[in-house]
Simulated scan of single mutants.
Amino acid sequence: MIQTAVKNLVDEALALNESLYLIDLSISENNKVQVVVDGDTGVPLSECIRISRNINDNLDREEEDFSLEVTTPDIAHPLKVKRQYIKNLNRILKVKNAEEEFEGTLVAADEDKIVLNWKAREPKLIGKGKVTVQKSVTIEYKDIIEAKVKIVF
């Protein structure tokens, strides 16, 4: 199956709703097409159906049989595109880079980097005990190995 043809159909369907964006598109060897879309304010089921129909109605099953699944990203899966970071501002993220792992509130996200803030307990400079300090880290997207939204109950 031609991935570019499927990608063009997905792009065509997404163009009708600018708040939606493609996270992942994969086609397995046995022609299982899996499309993962997200939206700035979530994705209603009706939009998944609309995207699925646009793909299904414009590909010929007589020419090549396929199965199709249009879904939204699972909360347990890592963030993949920059728009997902913007969508998750003010949420707690776990972010891994090559050196360490950070957990903090996502307070900023732009084209190049993200900023996390958190509070930590550190020993006092003078005397016994600990003091709470505000910490912050700026991480460029290219340095992020994995970033996940932390689920808080």
Score class of each variant (00 low, 15 high):
residue 123 P to R: 09
residue 111 E to D: 14
residue 99 E to G: 09
residue 114 I to V: 14
residue 87 K to C: 02
residue 139 I to V: 15
residue 67 S to H: 10
residue 131 V to F: 00
residue 23 I to H: 04
residue 86 I to M: 08
residue 47 E to R: 03
residue 62 E to C: 01
residue 89 L to N: 10
residue 61 R to E: 13
residue 10 V to I: 09
residue 84 Q to K: 12
residue 63 E to Y: 11
residue 105 T to V: 15
residue 64 E to A: 12
residue 33 V to M: 06
residue 27 I to D: 04
residue 8 N to Q: 11
residue 18 E to V: 10
residue 76 A to V: 11
residue 19 S to P: 07
residue 16 L to D: 08
residue 127 G to H: 08
residue 95 V to Q: 12
residue 98 A to G: 02
residue 96 K to E: 15
residue 30 N to C: 05
residue 119 K to I: 01
residue 4 T to N: 07
residue 106 L to H: 03
residue 48 C to I: 03
residue 84 Q to T: 13
residue 105 T to I: 14
residue 101 E to D: 10
residue 95 V to L: 09
residue 23 I to V: 15
residue 78 P to R: 14
residue 34 Q to Y: 05
residue 29 E to Q: 15
residue 99 E to H: 14
residue 129 G to L: 07
residue 133 V to L: 06
residue 111 E to I: 06
residue 108 A to S: 14
residue 54 N to G: 11
residue 107 V to Y: 04
residue 64 E to W: 06
residue 113 K to G: 08
residue 51 I to G: 05
residue 124 K to L: 13
residue 19 S to K: 11
residue 49 I to E: 13
residue 110 D to G: 06
residue 80 K to S: 13
residue 11 D to Q: 03
residue 140 E to V: 15
residue 53 R to Q: 14
residue 57 D to E: 09
residue 18 E to L: 12
residue 59 L to Q: 03
residue 137 V to I: 12
residue 119 K to V: 01
residue 5 A to F: 01
residue 17 N to R: 10
residue 110 D to Y: 07
residue 4 T to Y: 02
residue 89 L to R: 09
residue 64 E to V: 13
residue 76 A to S: 15
residue 127 G to A: 11
residue 80 K to R: 15
residue 113 K to C: 14
residue 59 L to I: 06
residue 105 T to W: 02
residue 22 L to M: 08
residue 109 A to Y: 09
residue 23 I to Y: 02
residue 9 L to Y: 02
residue 46 S to P: 00
residue 104 G to V: 05
residue 35 V to W: 04
residue 19 S to E: 15
residue 33 V to T: 10
residue 90 N to E: 09
residue 84 Q to M: 11
residue 134 Q to T: 04
residue 91 R to C: 01
residue 86 I to L: 13
residue 117 N to Q: 14
residue 7 K to V: 04
residue 118 W to F: 13
residue 55 I to F: 05
residue 137 V to A: 08
residue 79 L to M: 14
residue 19 S to L: 11
residue 43 V to F: 10
residue 38 D to M: 06
residue 33 V to G: 02
